[in-house]
Design a protein around this nucleic acid. Sequence first.
DNA 1: TCTGGGGTCCTAGGACCC
DNA 2: TCTGGGGTCCTAGGACCC
Length: 433
Amino acid sequence: MATNRFQYALVDGNNFYVSCERVFNPHLEGRPIVVLSNNDGCAVARSDEAKALGIPMGAPHFQIRDLLKQHGGLALSSNYALYSDMSRRMMSVIAEYSPEHEVYSIDESFLRFTGFQHWNLTEQGIRVRRQVRQWTGIPVGVGIGPTKTLAKLANRLAKRHPDFKAMGVCNLQDLEPWHQIAYFTDMDVQDVWGVGPRWAAKLHEMGIHSAQDLKLADPETLRKRFNVVLERTIRELNGTPCIPLEEAPQPKQQIVSSRSFGQLLTDKRDLMEAVSTYAARAAAKLRKGGQAAGGIQVFLSTNSFRPDDPQYHPSTLINFTTPSDDTARLIGAALKGVNKIFKPAYRYKKAGVMLVDLVSNTARQGDLFGTTTEPQLERRGRLLGVLDTLNVQMGCGTLRFAAEGTAQAWRMRRDTLTPGYTTDWEGLMVAKC
DNA sequence: TCTGGGGTCCTAGGACCC
DNA sequence: TCTGGGGTCCTAGGACCC
């Protein structure tokens, strides 16, 4: 492989949520552990032992409960407050290794090395891995290559291939060309970043089975049969960077807040409470990003896993005359939406809101026909600021609007939630002598 | 009984304008 | 006998990601 000016490293946590739990509870080591999605629905993270039992990603909890029990395993409710905090700690360690750093997801980040030609990046990979482990307790894998797609691919080898697993680092630069071809030929095309199940099936039909096949495919032809995204993937596999490093988070284009309910709902008041809560949560996210929404979409849904039940999946969009970040206004619009689409006699499983047409709060258009004056907006902003601060400091939902309800019969299930070890004074560990 | 949530980008096709 | 064409904007749907 020719030496590029840049090299990318992808550092990501192994079985991240499970690893976060294990940091604080050593009894979880060596056992099949899964972390469940919201509402304790299905497995979203699995320990190696759980994977070895054949538990697939997304397996419904009720289908794997017995298997886990038989093997001394455990299913935990997800503790996102804990995982976000652990993520922040992990990222701050990783960021020390290059001035060019992108946080790609809760457990993954890219580093770019520019002008590090004389460094041994494999050594750097080993160091970052050791340091993250030592400082946060999280095991990570490191993949290094001349593009993001290749770094992802190398990371997969680092975590899964016996040749690299012990070291936990795979640097494509270290491999002889024939050796690289062997690894690429060994990898199914669906395991390439950017190729999902649909495209993989179509590619297999065309005789493109492995990462190596895709690398050698004609980008122009595949662009016509698929789209420009796949063309970029092919070019990236060949060492041409097409996907930029995004060091600053991009402003959001939409904000979604939705949840399945702990039980099926039929009462309109329950739905109104739930939707109000989601609208409030979305509004808080909106203000955190310094944005305002031009509209809000509300949706309800029955349980589509029960095809014999009457199905109903309505949605409606309410546009504002001027963009807003005011919880009260968003809740008001959301409730209007519920009124519009709610029909009795259905059993609802899920509801949500989506904020759309987001604009930066600094560049907001004034309300030509509105009655709200600047000082009123100003006071309103201060009030919402206090609400946000309190909810961050004292916990989400400490201060809320009456429309969100108090009993909240529809709240999600979290039967096996672990303590907020690093995010809640009550969850702090106690050392006993 | 029990099946997640939150995002992005691309494309095709229709509406509309001149 | 004869009925344009090009550009832009918007939306829905489909694919992908974690």
